[in-house]
Amino acid sequence: MNIWSPECKGEQFSASVIRLATGPETGDTNGIYVGWAVSPAVYGDDNAHLFTFWKGGDGSTGCYDMRCPGFVQTDKGIVLGDVYNKTSDYGGIQQVADFHITQDPVTKNWILSIGKEERQAGYWPTELFPLMAGDKGATRLSFGGITMRGIEQEESPPMGSGYKPDKDARHSAIMIQILFSGNYSEFRAPFDYETDNILDNSKCYGLNNYGQTDDYGYLIAFGGPGGPNC
């Protein structure tokens, strides 16, 4: 995914996220979220941060990054919640982040790897997620953007670059080379019949699902300016 720093204030939240989840469609009971986020309320500034969130047990436990017991850090050089000092330029140089989430076939723990070299940052123990423990796995995978406006803000924040996607991939938030695996099979791109395109408010944000492409693998583009009534 490419990294942006949309303007957020107060409790506004804007992120590009990969989500593995199990539970009712209207509210995940167990889930893992990974990507980047801008959240002054969580991080104390308006920078883009390496973002993770998990929800476990009966849905009542979990937290951001390492703010509660859960995630086990194995690489001290990778800090969940760390700042991305460089972000993408509209139409220019794109700063990117690579994420890889796998389940260890022996321990059943959920492993987070970062970068093209798949450097292992750590793992979430399988015991945190009773609905995804063992061979149950996740029932849903989601890729895209999330925004929240907060109680004190009247407008929803921008998503990604703050522009809706167009024909130039450097103009919006994108995710490329989307791959997944089931039951420890080979990684592959999704088929069209396996995907749903969900856009909550087309006035404020846009979504283009390009599917499998020659240059970028499986590609989606999303984002927008936000605003009132989003």
Rank of each mutant, 00 (worst) to 15 (best):
F143L: 04
G35S: 07
G44R: 10
M148P: 00
L219R: 13
M159P: 13
G56H: 06
L50H: 11
W124N: 04
D166Y: 07
E186L: 00
G10S: 11
G31S: 15
S202L: 05
I220F: 03
L50P: 13
Y184I: 00
L50Q: 10
Y43P: 15
P69Y: 03
A41P: 11
Y43S: 04
G44E: 08
C8N: 04
A97F: 09
F222V: 11
L80C: 05
R119T: 09
I93T: 14
M159R: 02
T139W: 03
H171A: 10
T213A: 10
S14M: 02
G217S: 08
S39Q: 01
Y216K: 10
S181R: 08
K203E: 15
P105W: 07
A133W: 02
N197S: 10
M132A: 15
G70Y: 03
G206V: 03
E7Q: 06
I198C: 06
Q212W: 07
D45K: 00
F53K: 10
F51W: 15
R119G: 02
G56W: 00
D192Q: 08
Q94S: 12
A48K: 03
G59K: 14
D46C: 03
F53R: 11
Y210H: 15
D98N: 13
P158K: 06
E25F: 10
W36G: 09
G44Q: 03
G226F: 02
L80D: 02
I3M: 09
W4T: 06
E11Y: 15
G144H: 12
D166C: 06
G62W: 01
E118T: 05
T107G: 07
G226N: 07
P130K: 04
D215C: 07
I174E: 10
L112E: 12
E11L: 07
G27F: 07
L219P: 01
T107M: 11
S60F: 01
D28Q: 10
T126N: 11
E152T: 11
D166R: 11
D89H: 03
K164A: 00
Q73F: 02
W110A: 03
A97P: 00
G23R: 08
D46H: 04
L131G: 01
Q177M: 01
A97M: 12
R170S: 14
T147C: 02
Q12N: 02
G226Y: 02
M175Q: 08
T52L: 06
F191K: 12
E118W: 01
T195V: 14
D58S: 11
H171P: 00
I176Y: 15
S172I: 09
I93D: 12
R67P: 00
K167E: 08
D89Y: 04
N30Y: 01
G226T: 01
N201I: 06
G217V: 03
A15C: 05
G226R: 04
V106M: 12
N2Y: 14
I178V: 09
A37D: 15
D192N: 13
S156R: 01
N85Y: 05
Q73M: 04
I111N: 15
Y193T: 10
N229M: 13
G137R: 08
I93F: 07
N85D: 09
Y64C: 09
S142G: 00
P225Q: 13
S113G: 08
T107C: 05
Y205G: 12
G59H: 09
Q12H: 09
I176N: 13
Y205L: 09
R19C: 06
R19H: 10
F51N: 15
L131K: 12
G227N: 01
D196E: 07
M175E: 13
S5I: 11
